[in-house]
């Protein structure tokens, strides 16, 4: 399948600090790739390099076949949508006026404003002045602005970090819909369940390298110790091996009606994350 992003041995050094040491990965057309890693591991740095906001120290990256030095191209910018933590809005203007400016910059009809606001659940607030918005509302306006021109490739840096579960869910549905329509999404998040629900593949970035890259399901299976936990009516919790010997025991408990619940002990993405990085997510 065609690669939209190709990254080869990318390195970025700030002064004497190495942010990225040797990063390589590809993003396929139409997939959602989750870029996970501890705070300070270089996720935002990677997005900035891939969107022409930072020069790599060494290595190379191509987006839509363009090398990082030619990302200022006007047509390239129409094809991508970027939401990072350094995105800003005009405080004295309304949500509508902020989006109207971007409609004109991208040559998109203003009718698009309603459509993107519906996607982020802000249709009734478009007259509100930006300085009066809550943190989560700001984040949703920024996301709406990112989606205004129907980009083929989305860079989303922690798009739901300030959102309540209901709004996160609403936006997840929206993003999945976009993805179904063919939008490629490059996403960073500290929310492992978000990565699990949205991403076709996830990459773990740690110590300047991609330590692991695969489908969440496969990773969980790979990291699973294939044990099963059985909860019994007398309150005991028993961990059983996954093979035939475990099956006999479970059968006994089941036939004597002692079982409350049975769980396979697959690790969560969070468990794998901790396993790789050795520390909890912040």
């Amino acid at each position: 399948m065609e690669n939209v992003i190709e990254v080869n041995s990318l390195a970025k050094i700030f002064g004497n600090q190495t942010a990225l040491e040797n990063v390589s990965f590809n993003v396929k057309k139409g997939e959602t790739l989750g870029f996970l890693g501890p705070s300070g591991s270089g996720k935002t740095t990677t997005i900035k390099i891939l969107t022409g906001q930072l020069r790599p120290t060494s290595g190379e990256a191509h987006v839509f076949g363009l090398s990082t030095s030619s990302l200022k191209n006007k047509d390239f910018r129409k094809r991508i949508g970027v939401l990072t933590d350094n995105s800003g809005l005009y405080n004295r203007l309304s949500i509508y006026d902020n989006l109207k400016l971007y409609c004109d910059l991208y040559n998109v009809p203003t009718a698009k404003i309603d459509e993107v606001l519906r996607l982020v659940n802000l249709t009734d607030d478009q007259k509100k002045v930006v300085s009066k918005l809550s943190k989560g509302m700001l984040q949703r306006v920024l996301l709406a602005r990112t989606l205004l021109h129907d980009p083929e490739l989305l860079f989303l840096d922690e798009p739901t970090s300030a959102l309540d579960p209901a709004n996160s869910k609403h936006i997840h549905e929206g993003l999945r819909r976009l993805n179904d329509q063919g939008t490629t999404i490059f996403l960073t998040t500290h929310d492992m369940s978000e990565a699990e629900t949205l991403c076709d593949r996830v990459a773990f970035l740690h110590k300047g390298k991609v330590q692991l890259l695969d489908e969440p399901k496969k990773l969980r299976r790979q990291y699973s110790d294939s044990t099963i936990t059985v909860e019994l009516k007398d309150g005991r919790e028993i961990v059983l091996p996954g093979g035939s010997e475990g099956a006999d025991t479970i059968y006994n408990y089941l036939s004597t009606d002692q079982v409350v619940s049975v769980h396979s002990n697959e690790p969560t993405l969070g468990d794998i994350f901790v396993d790789i990085t050795g520390r909890e997510l912040v």
Partner: peptide
Amino acid sequence: KHTLRGLMLSP
């Protein structure tokens, strides 16, 4: 306010 970045990233 980081709005210049938005303009720079636009076409």
